[in-house]
Structure formats: C-alpha cells, structure tokens
C-alpha cells in the first residue's frame, strides 16, 4: 500500500506518496528528477548513490524512501550554494579528481560528510572515509588531494 511521506530535499520541503519498496535513490531520480545521484551496483557496494540523510552519508540504494520520511536529504545537487560550486567541488576540478564523472556525486557527498565531521583530516583519514566509494577510471590520488585541498581552503 502506498505511503505518504514528507521530507526536505536540498532544503526544499517535499510531500509525496510512494510505494514502500521504492528506494530513496529511485525516488530522488524518478519522482524528483534529481538525476545527479547515480546508481551503479544497486546493492550497496559501489557508493555512487551516496546522499546525506540527516547529515550522515548513506547509500540511497539501501534506504527506502519511506525511511527518509521526516528527514533531511541532501544530494549532489544540494552541494553548490547560490549557483557557485562548493570549495570541495572546485577542488575536485582543480585536482583532476574525476574522469568520466559517474562516481563523482558519491565521492563529493561522502567527502562533504567527512569534512563536516572532521575539518582537518589526514590523508589516511580521507582514504578511510572514502574507502566505500569505488572509482574505476583511474586512481584515487587526485581525489585524496582534492579533499585535502578543500579542507585547507575551508579552514583558511
């Protein structure tokens, strides 16, 4: 039986009626047209679909939309402020932290959560925090450098 939910997505109040089996990822992409959240493996292994729910990074493929009822969801579309890229997004561009870009939304959201919790991480802490995100184009070095640079820029 469909269920009515009320939540905020990127700061905007949303009311919707969803089937309980609909994942949060599908709800964001199909019902709200927020297609920045990417679906890779759809079983929690790849991290591409990572979003923030109440400030915590979660796999939106492993959460049903009904479980986000009453919550605050932030997707990659919510990271830019007033049309300007966030310092982290700018650092990803400056440090070549993406290639094809498929996994990038998940990395950006996971790294945003890390920096909110730990504004001055070590490279090892960045690697640990991003270890659940899979990148397949090339290496992770640029990503780690970008996160460290963004942390430095935000502390300055």
């Amino acid at each position: 039986m469909p269920v009515e939910i009320a939540l905020t997505v990127n700061g905007v109040p949303v009311r919707a009626v969803v089937e309980p089996r609909q994942s949060l990822a599908d709800f964001l992409r199909e019902d709200l047209a927020l297609t920045g959240t990417h679906l890779g493996c759809e079983h929690g292994a790849c991290g591409a679909c990572t979003v923030l729910v109440d400030g915590a990074a979660v796999r939106s493929c492993l959460v049903f939309a009904v479980q986000a009822d009453g919550g605050e969801v932030v997707t990659v579309e919510g990271l830019a402020q007033g049309g300007a890229l966030s310092p982290l997004q700018r650092a990803f561009r400056a440090h070549h932290a993406l290639q094809c870009g498929f996994c990038t939304p998940g990395f950006l959201v996971a790294a945003t959560a890390l920096l909110a919790e730990n504004p001055d991480p070590t490279a090892d802490e960045v690697r640990a925090a991003l270890s659940g995100q899979i990148f397949r184009c090339t290496g992770y070095v640029g990503i780690v450098e970008a996160v460290l640079a963004a942390a430095k820029a935000e502390r300055a």
Partner: peptide, 12 residues
C-alpha cells in the same frame, strides 16, 4: 567496528 563495511554502511 571500524572493520564493518564502510562509513556510509555504518551510518545506517
């Protein structure tokens, strides 16, 4: 606990 999956899984 740090050996359990990854941060996003441990959050849920």
């Amino acid at each position: 606990v740090p050996h359990i999956a990854h941060v996003a899984i441990r959050n849920r």
